[in-house]
Amino acid sequence: MSGVVELQSLPSRPPHLPATLELSGIAHSFGGFKVLSDVNFAVPQGQIVGLIGPNGSGKSTCFNIVSGFLSPKAGRVLLSGRDMAADSIQARTRQGLMRTFQTPKVFERMSVLENVMVGLHKDGRSGILASMLRTPSARRELDRLRNTAEGACRKFGLGKLLDAQTGRLPAGQRRVVELARAYVGAPRLLLLDEPSSGLNTEEIEQLRGWIAMLNSEGMTILLVSHDMGLMTIADTVHALYFGEIIASGPMTAIQADPRVREAYLGG
């Protein structure tokens, strides 16, 4: 227990970096079953923050609360100091929040390029009438979306797969498509939900490279993963256990924490 106190006292939010995301007193339950209880942590701007925990520890619930798929029973979620309680999923996106899913949710019947173009939807203006009439501004906008998406595809090594049907790609490439799609919208905060799930060692290494690249470009990242190796990329890691944060700190310290070892790593 004393180890936990020590770890929690580690600065998870360096004073010189304003918090992009802050969770304060978050609690949630399904029926009478408590899944999150007084969860507090911050994701400082420009950092990678990790969230680990065994199955059922509340990681996904936490993610769903931040991204707006669930409303917490108590507590606040602040993005750059602004409470997002009343914001819809789309409103959060417009404010710069983006997430991926544990099982990549790509648009299977669309091409890789089209998938990534949808990542720019929030930046578009042309509506139904303008698109029907193919007004010059709608055409210009579509060209711009296409060019930007194409650039993002090339950046993520998808240049040769632009016209490929995404549903026919292997799991690793789908994951990259999802990442490129999230990246292209230039989010302020990117939430990555188990991004290494279903990937082989080589693909995980490549994924690590992508995450490092995104972070080096200034993207703030909240990462949920079971993969301890991947988690070492995080500046700070929070360990969830039965809905409570039991430890916070750098991954090396988390791995050494006896309670985390007992709860998560099996002693």
Partner: peptide, 30 residues
């Protein structure tokens, strides 16, 4: 007109919604 619509920005959003609704929502599709 429908063909133009489907090839345009709303068409992309529609098909995204059809294929993976939660992802479309996250990407800002109302």
């Amino acid at each position: 007109l429908a063909d133009n619509l489907v090839r345009g920005r709303p068409g992309l959003a529609m098909r995204a919604m059809r294929d993976a609704a939660p992802a479309a929502e996250v990407l800002g599709v109302d």
